[in-house]
Amino acid sequence: MVALCGMILSIFQDYLFTERHNTSFVFFESLLFKCVWVVFFLAYLCSYKSFHMIKEMSHQKLILLYGALVFCHVFVSTVMVWAISWIFKDQGYGLAKILAFTFSNDSSKILFIYFLSMIYLKRFYSPTLDSKEANEITDTAESQPKNLEIKNGRQHHLVSFDAILCIKADSPYVLVQTEDNSYLHSSSLKKVGEELDSRFFKLHRSCIVNIDKVTSYQSRLNGDYDVCLSGHINVRLSRNYAKQFKAVIGDLITI
C-alpha cells in the first residue's frame, strides 16, 4: 500500500512539474521510472517472514544489511527500467543513464525508507501469528519437557521449569538461577532458550526470566527497567524488549 501510494504521488508530482514548465506529460515515461516503488513491494514480499530476525541483529550486522538492501534496490530497479524500456520502446535507455537518474532522483527516498523500516523493525515490531501457526506453537509447547537438563562436566541436574527464576549468559557457560541454588550449564543462552517453554521471556541479549516469577518492575527513566523476581533478585529489562514484556505481563494480568 505504501509503495502504491508513493508511486501515485510521484506520477502526480511529474504531472505537476510538466504543467508548471509547460511541457508534455507522457504517462508511460513517468510510470516506467517509478519501478523504484515496485521494488519496495517486492522486497517486502521476499523478506516479511524474516522481520523478527532484525530485532536480534547487532548494530554492525544491521549496517551491513542496510547497505546491501540499498545496493540491491538500486541495481534491481535500474535493471527493471532498462528491460521494460527495451521491450516496449523502439529504442531503450542505456543502463548508465538509468543508473545516474536513479542515484540523482531516487537515492534519498531509498535510503530514508529503508532506514525508517529498520528502525521500526528493531524497536517496535512484534510479529503476529495466524491461527494455524498459533496452534502449531501450542501443540509444540504441550509436547515439550518440563525440566531443563543442566550439564557441568560429569554432573547432570534436572531442574524443573517451575523452579527457575532466570538464566544469564556467563561465558563460556550460562547461569541457571533458582530460589534455592544456582547452576553453571555448559551451553549457550540461545540453545537453552530453544529448550524452554512460553513462560520464559528474554529481557535482553544475556538474560532470560521466568515470567511467572516476576513480582514487579520499575523504570530507570532511560528506557530500561529493573525487573524484580521472587527471592528479591533484580535483573535489567532492555528498552528493546520493553514493549513485548509489557504486552506479555498485560496478558497474564488479564487472564
Rank of each mutant, 00 (worst) to 15 (best):
C5H: 08
C5G: 15
I8H: 02
D14Y: 09
E19Y: 06
N22R: 11
N22K: 13
K34T: 13
V39Y: 01
F40I: 06
L42F: 15
A43I: 11
Y48E: 10
S50P: 00
S58M: 03
H59Q: 10
S77T: 12
M80N: 03
I84F: 15
I87S: 07
Q91N: 09
F101V: 03
L111C: 15
F112K: 08
Y114R: 04
M118T: 07
M118Y: 12
I119P: 00
L121T: 04
L121G: 05
Y125I: 02
P127R: 12
L129H: 10
K132F: 15
N135W: 09
T138H: 13
S143H: 10
Q144Y: 02
K146W: 00
I150Y: 01
G153D: 05
H156D: 00
L158S: 14
D162E: 14
I167L: 11
P172Q: 04
Q177C: 13
S188C: 04
S188Y: 01
E195P: 01
L196R: 06
R199H: 11
R199W: 05
K202V: 05
C207L: 03
C207P: 03
I211M: 15
D212Q: 06
K213P: 01
Y217E: 08
L221D: 10
N222G: 10
G223K: 01
G223V: 04
G223E: 05
Y225N: 02
D226M: 14
D226W: 12
I233L: 15
V235F: 04
Q244G: 11
Q244I: 09
V248F: 07
